[in-house]
């Protein structure tokens, strides 16, 4: 096999390649039907749809890699968002950056609580976070008095984050999202703690034997997921210009989980890359924008998300089965 074909075959056997191919195909098909899809304006809309999902997806991806699930991120997003909104409204003399930091800290604190409950009582994270999904949403209503933070209170400079651009017309929040993705990549691939998350997820029994401190690591993962959901809350306020306790972030967890599993992150832990997740988010963002352009009712969006989750799980399963068989064959050959 020549070097080039070998290179091509490794490239094609990566999970990310499949998603990239799907992205290109989707762009071509939708573009063929509706040429407006292949314009810069559409690209800008897609780019703006990405940051919200991408930042939270980085957190969810780490949680899934550690063999857990976090269903509460939609409520954490809302909580951080409403805290920031209330501070903007009631404490206008406080610098914006302080409010933003406070909101992210709130998200981290709620994530920390998730992690502590899961590890301290050895409970399945899905049930715990189903509980905190409701609990945190209740807190959102409680602190806000069930009142919306109206657009006039959201600072202009924050809203401009999603409108103005420092370079090439790419809005600030898009750049921020990709910086977060790069940092996550660096953390997961080049920091010992990040590698330990993979070790923990691929074999939770063996992890402590290798000297991994499972409890603090799990709590850290949930805390990071909470903090990133909190940051997403700020982006939400910037993007939509209001915070509503009953609307903000409802059902957001399903979108994020869909994006992450399309990106090839295995629900059985230990497998998943930042690149795959980024591509998964982009694919989902493209689908979002393509639907109205194709004249498909927005009602189909959830159907597509659900189908995408199920299909991604089936693909993941078949990939795992195949690699397990290959491993068994290699072992018996040796």
């Amino acid at each position: 096999m020549s070097l080039i074909t070998k290179f091509l075959s490794t490239l094609l056997h990566r999970r990310e390649a499949g998603i990239a191919v799907m992205i290109v195909l989707l762009a071509l098909v939708v573009g063929a039907i509706q040429p407006r899809f292949l314009t810069l304006e559409t690209l800008r809309i897609i780019a703006l749809a990405i940051p919200l999902i991408l930042i939270a997806a980085m957190g969810q991806m780490m949680v899934l890699v550690a063999r857990h699930v976090d269903l509460s991120i939609g409520s954490i997003l809302a909580f951080s968002s409403i805290i920031a909104g209330i501070m903007f409204r009631d404490l206008p003399e406080v610098p914006i950056i302080i409010s933003i930091i406070a909101a992210i800290a709130c998200g981290a604190a709620l994530g920390f609580v998730n992690g502590v409950i899961v590890t301290l009582f050895k409970l399945p994270s899905i049930i715990v976070t189903l509980g905190t999904l409701s609990l945190y949403r209740g807190l959102v209503f409680l602190v806000s008095g069930a009142r919306q933070v109206d657009p006039q209170y959201i600072p202009r400079s924050l809203i401009e984050m999603s409108q103005t651009s420092p370079i090439f017309g790419i809005p600030w929040i898009v750049i921020l999202a990709f910086v977060i993705a790069l940092l996550t990549y660096f953390f997961l691939d080049h920091v010992r703690l990040g590698r330990q998350i993979y070790a923990l997820g691929s074999n939770p029994v063996a992890a402590p034997l290798r000297g991994i401190k499972v409890v603090p690591l799990t709590i850290l993962v949930f805390t990071m997921s909470g903090a990133l959901a909190g940051l997403t809350g700020i982006i939400y306020a910037s993007r939509f210009g209001y915070v509503n306790p009953g609307i903000t972030g409802v059902g957001f967890e399903f979108t994020v989980i869909a994006a992450v599993v399309i990106g090839g992150v295995s629900i059985n832990g230990g497998v998943g890359t930042v690149l795959g997740t980024v591509l998964g988010v982009i694919l989902l963002g493209m689908v979002n924008v393509a639907l109205p352009l194709l004249g498909v009712s927005a009602f189909w969006q959830d159907v597509i998300y659900g189908a995408v989750i199920v299909i991604a799980l089936l693909i993941d399963k078949s990939v795992r089965d195949r690699s397990a068989r290959a491993l068994a064959a290699a072992r018996s050959a040796a």
């Binding site: 869909a258 159907v303 998300y305 399963k317």
Partner: peptide, 20 residues
Amino acid sequence: LPSIIVTIGTLTLYRGLAQV
């Protein structure tokens, strides 16, 4: 497939179909 995550997928799917 693990039921815990599959039924999250189908919950989105069924709710979406109801909406359609």
